[in-house]
């Protein structure tokens, strides 16, 4: 079958559109966990400190720090791990600051996400991409 140039361009454009239309965002495991934590409430961006190395020297032990002033609890997720949950930090009446440091396992390069529940019932989050490398001869 012979295509006119017009027809060819139309078919090409249609094909391109099919390819570039973004797939409806698959609800990832991490998103589902955030939904559960917040009960579907809005989550503001910012107001949560998340400190993690840009490049993790080893994915087995990655030091991170999370903090949010006035937070009652902070949930940390590793979006790319087979199971995203990392920890939920709850701060009691004698907590000196609403922050904590720990060391976590990251299966590969991915986003680490921290979602904070504030004392006033609002939610905020921050995310950081951590590159996880494989080094050396594998020894």
């Amino acid at each position: 079958m012979e295509f006119t140039r017009r027809e060819t361009l139309a078919v090409g454009a249609a094909a391109a559109m099919v390819v570039t239309i973004p797939m409806p965002a698959m609800a990832s495991k991490a998103d589902a966990l955030i939904e559960e934590f917040t009960g579907g409430a809005d989550v503001a961006d910012g107001g949560v400190d998340l400190d993690a190395p840009e490049i993790a020297e080893n994915g087995n032990t990655v030091p991170i720090e999370v903090g949010a002033e006035g937070a009652e609890a902070i949930m940390v997720l590793a979006a790319g791990n087979p199971e995203p949950p990392v920890a939920t930090f709850r701060f009691g009446p004698l907590a000196g600051a609403h922050r904590a440091k720990t060391r976590i396992r990251l299966a590969g390069t991915q986003d680490v996400i921290a979602v904070a529940k504030m004392a006033d019932g609002s939610y905020a989050k921050a995310a950081k991409t951590v590159k996880v490398t494989i080094g050396g001869c594998g020894g």
Binding site: T61, N81, V86, A87, T88, F89, T102
Partner: peptide, 14 residues
Amino acid sequence: QNVVDFKMEPAIST
């Protein structure tokens, strides 16, 4: 009195 209460998952390092 409580200071902190942390729920830990398998992604916490050894």
